[in-house]
Design a binder for these strands. Structure first.
Lengths: 212, 212
DNA sequence: GTGTAATATTTTGTATGCAGAATTCATAGT
DNA sequence: ACTATGAATTCTGCATACAAAATATTACAC
């Protein structure tokens, strides 16, 4: 059995993202390195390494002498991030193998449909949505692009917990997912990419109201 | 006078990128932390922090227990990076203020023209090219996008020194820059973005021959 | 009571120290 | 000669230590 042998900084980063998803940290919160390191049971060194990584992804900010803090949220930044991910996911889709996309299209359609049926917890919805997008991009051979998308999405997770448990806007999202899948079934890559971009733009507008 | 007061890790990162541009490090070279730290006159701690940042940008790779090394180059990765930057710069252009673009279009055209006239050193050419693209995107309000472009371009610098001092392909690049500027003069944003994408795709193909 | 200067405390940024993994080198066996 | 094995060495990953910057607290003048 291959025992887990991974740098602490990565495990720490993962744990911090988990806590961020749980809503443990409010945006703008300063991070106390000694306190957090003690809480996690590690030293400051790998913790700081994780913090630097997260700062590179835009999850944290760092100011000289003042350490790290969770970057504050803003409508402007959210709009910016959505535009970026929309473009990147569209690119990933367009540079995927059309045959493969046609093959997974039914599955994508199915997922999108029982997406609108089941009204679940917020976190379940998010997970479902993430998995759908992951499957959609699973045929893209551009590894750097996929990494980049993951990284940018990490920066967006700060906005996830602002989406409180209303399910109505999700039905719209499910419709949009269906539209993407349908275009793929038709072999219309361009159209699918456009629908995907729309999905992000609309998703953005759905969220905008909830951001201060 | 405001004396420079900036984290060491940033200064180190900058210095390393400078050395990378000078071609001091071959792709695939392992980094010896104590040696490099001694050479730079700093301790391993801020050096490692800089290395982690660079790894996040794709300039370096890190393997558990084996430290950092300059990521090897490949046609595949270069193609991937070009596709990404093309999409991102096009997005930046499309989300710029059209009026502003029209205003700077003459300057862009001028720069592109005396670009083809002066046959200079490789590094001068690169700097000129970089400045042209910077000016082109200077009207984009999406700060996250600009940061991201900078970051991805950092990963591409590993390929820069492969471009030895032949000037012929640069004339093609200058032509393409002119075309972008001309479209902007006409107020044709879509066309300019398309021409910009072409510039990246063509630039990629010009480079492909020189990569092992 | 409020504002300010001096001091104490906290917290970050950097340096150093240490344990263990990875690599190298040497030696023995075939 | 070549491979295998094990010791010696090198180097990373993490922990701890220290110095300087930032923040909080106190004392005091007005």
């Amino acid at each position: 059995m291959p025992i887990e042998r991974r740098p602490l900084r990565e495990q720490i980063r993962e744990e911090l993202m988990l806590r961020l998803d749980r809503g443990d940290f409010a945006a703008g919160t300063d991070i106390n390195e000694v306190a957090l390191a003690g809480e996690l049971g590690v030293s400051r060194t790998p913790l700081r390494e994780a913090l630097i990584t997260l700062a590179g992804e835009g999850v944290l900010e760092s100011n000289q002498g003042r350490g790290f803090r969770f970057a504050p949220v803003s409508r402007k930044e959210f709009r910016e991030l959505c535009a970026i991910v929309a473009a990147l996911e569209a690119l990933a889709l367009e540079s995927s193998d059309p045959a493969y996309l046609k093959k997974i299209a039914p599955e994508l359609l199915g997922l999108a449909q029982d997406f609108s049926d089941n009204i679940a917890e917020r976190q379940d919805i998010e997970r479902h949505d993430d998995e759908w997008h992951d499957l959609l991009l699973s045929g893209c051979g551009n590894e750097r692009l996929l990494d980049l998308i993951t990284s940018v999405k990490a920066g967006m997770r700060r906005y996830a917990h602002l989406m409180t448990g209303e399910s109505t806007p999700m039905e719209r999202a499910a419709e949009e997912h269906c539209r993407v899948a349908e275009r793929l079934l038709d072999g219309d890559l361009e159209g699918a990419a456009a629908a995907l971009r729309d999905n992000w733009v609309n998703g953005m507008e759905r969220m905008m109201a909830r951001i201060p």
